[in-house]
Structure formats: C-alpha cells, structure tokens
C-alpha cells in the first residue's frame, strides 16, 4: 500500500499524489492543476500542493534548473544583480536581516534558474518566504502557519517579480570557534559549493535527456561566480551580515 508521495511520469500530464494531502497534475507546458483532499484545511493543503510541490515540478518541466538557494536583491530598483544564499544552515537567519535593511526577495529556496552564455538568471517564485515560527517575534512581516501543528510559517516580505542575473553566491553555515565570519571561496571548493546547490533527482535537468555536459552547465556557471562562505553566530548576526554586505559591495564593483 502506498501511503507516501508518488510521481507518475508515464502518462500526460504527470500525476503527483500524496495520500491525505491530495493530487496535482503538471502538464508538459508546466500547467498545474491542484486537487486537495476535501475537508477542513483544504485551502492550506491546496497551497502546500502548489507551492511545495507542483510549482517546482512545473518549473522543472519547463526546462529550468532548480537550485537549493534563496535569491535577494538590494532594492526594488537595483540593477546590481542578485545575491544567492545557499548552504545547509537556516537561510532565514540571513534573509531577514537583509530584508530589514531594505533588500527584496526574488525567490525563497528553491529557486528556478536558467542559463545564459555567461551566467545564471534567477526567476521569481510566488511562494512566500518559509521560516520557523520564532522569526515572527523578531521581525515585522506578516506571517501565517503553512499547516496545522507545523512550526513552518509563510512570511509576506517585499519582493521583486522579475528574472535577474545572479551576481554572487553566499554559502551560509554555523561559525565554529576560531573561525572568521566571512571568507572568499576559491578553487575547488567553489565548484563543490556550486554542485551542492544543484537539486538532482526528480528536478534534475537530466530528466530532459540533455547531454551530461549540458546538464551540469548550471553547476559550472554557478562555480564561475564570486562565492563567499558566511559563518554566522546568532549572537553576532548583525555584524556577520555587515561583513556580507561589505563583500557584496566588492562584488558589484568588480
């Protein structure tokens, strides 16, 4: 008996099923239909199916790569390109201080990207910024629980609804004793960070039967961008983010 999620790709449109949550279909052109399970909470189930699943499959079917990162720009009118935040750490810990300083969100993770000759373009997703509930107390943005009994909340934050070039990548992680807050990443480690951002499996561009070289293009292009490693400590987060902004200034002046 199947009780977990399943994705049927043998027929058109693709059928996504999660018993108890509902079903969704994703057509070849990316068109999505949602059919949540009936009953109380139907609207939240519908949003979960759309934002948490079908929308991602849709971007992938339309030929975009998805990367494990969030994208922000310094302001609504900035033409400096955008900053991609990645890493295994809680990204909201850096996203919120940036938003508090006037930055705008283009896409909370995962972010759809397309490749150009020279780089990567991030595309906006409509899903809210998802963060643990505790951020409600620290920041002014309106937030609602994504699901019953969940500590994941969706925050309505200032946004930019346009595709924008990725200008730099920041890998966020916890700072260990004796480490500096920010370090420029060079060499092989840069490729490693770029590769870690890629989402394979169901969302891998390889599903489109592209040539292997083409399939890793996103990784290679990500690795060619300026990359920094931001090691944060909640106690010094404000100065940690200051050091990120200093690094960002140096990137956009290049």
């Amino acid at each position: 008996m199947v009780v977990g999620p399943s994705v049927s790709v043998d027929t058109e449109p693709w059928l996504l099923t999660f018993p108890g949550l509902g079903t969704a279909t994703v057509a070849e052109d990316g068109t999505v239909t949602i059919d949540p399970e009936p009953g109380e909470g139907r609207e939240l189930r519908s949003k979960a199916l759309l934002n948490g699943w079908a929308d991602l499959i849709s971007w992938s079917r339309k030929g975009f790569s998805l990367i494990r990162g969030s994208c922000l720009v310094p302001s609504a009118t900035s033409d400096s390109g955008l900053l991609l935040l990645g890493g295994d750490h809680e990204l909201p810990e850096v996203e919120f201080p940036l938003l508090d300083r006037g930055w705008h969100l283009v896409s909370d993770k995962p972010t759809p990207v397309s490749e150009t000759e020279s780089g990567l373009i991030a595309h906006p997703r409509a899903a809210p910024l998802v963060a643990p509930k505790r951020y409600r107390k620290q920041h002014e943005w309106a937030a609602t629980a994504l699901r019953p009994d969940s500590n994941a909340f969706g925050f309505e934050v200032p946004r930019v609804h346009a595709p924008i070039d990725i200008r730099g990548i920041c890998e966020v992680r916890t700072r260990r004793p004796n480490e500096v807050a920010l370090e420029n990443v060079t060499g092989l480690e840069r490729f490693s960070i770029g590769a870690h951002l890629a989402i394979g499996g169901m969302l891998s561009p390889a599903r489109d039967a592209r040539e292997p070289d083409e399939a890793v293009a996103a990784h290679v292009r990500a690795a060619s961008l300026p990359v920094c490693s931001l090691r944060i400590d909640p106690k010094t987060i404000s100065t940690d983010v200051d050091s990120l902004l200093t690094w960002w200034d140096s990137v956009i002046q290049q």
């Binding site: 999620p5 948490g52 969940s150 394979g200 499996g201 169901m202």
Partner: peptide, 15 residues
C-alpha cells in the same frame, strides 16, 4: 527535493 521534487517544509508533522 531530489527524490520527489517535494519541499517538505509545506507538510504537517504527520506527513
């Protein structure tokens, strides 16, 4: 995300 293309943050604890 890799296995099903699913962002688990949108699920309930039971899910």
């Amino acid at each position: 995300l890799n296995a099903f293309g699913l962002d688990a943050r949108w699920l309930t604890p039971a899910e």
